[in-house]
């Protein structure tokens, strides 16, 4: 089974870190990814730029609407994601619990959803 682990934390906690603390956290995440990779759990993943770098896009009435944000109304911001291969949900939770920001943020674990097979006829594109 594949699970996505979404990493959320308050960016202000990160902003308050010293250079050395931030470096240590990054190194710790890299080591974690190495371990997950060695054990065959890591499919892919990525850390994200802070939320103020985000741009949102919507298509309404055929028109592309572009805006800044999402604005940080929420307490914690999305900071990265992991796509994990795990035997079951409890194994995925155990792996997610070792992602370093679990200590000060929240890791949301969601099973991936398989899309239904493509219809044989008709072209929806």
């Amino acid at each position: 089974m594949q699970y996505v682990a979404l990493v959320y934390y308050q960016e202000q906690l990160i902003n308050a870190m010293s250079e050395a603390e931030w470096h240590a956290l990054n190194q710790e995440c890299l080591a974690g990814v190495e371990r997950l990779t060695d054990a065959g759990h890591f499919v892919t993943g990525q850390a994200l730029q802070p939320v103020d770098s985000a741009t949102s896009v919507r298509l309404r009435d055929g028109e592309l609407l572009v805006s800044d944000g999402p604005f940080a109304e929420t307490k914690e911001q999305l900071a990265g994601f992991y796509l994990l291969e795990a035997h079951d949900l409890n194994e995925a939770l155990r792996l997610a619990g070792r992602i370093p920001p679990a200590r000060f943020g929240t890791i949301e674990v969601r099973p991936v959803r398989e899309l239904p097979p493509r219809d044989a006829t008709g072209d929806a594109s």
Binding site: M1, H87, D88, N90, L93
Partner: peptide, 18 residues
């Protein structure tokens, strides 16, 4: 069994069972 299998067999949500 996997968490998901147990949950399904006991008619519970996987997240609750986990």
């Amino acid at each position: 069994l996997t968490t998901e299998q147990v949950a399904s067999a006991l008619l519970q949500r996987p997240a609750s069972l986990a």
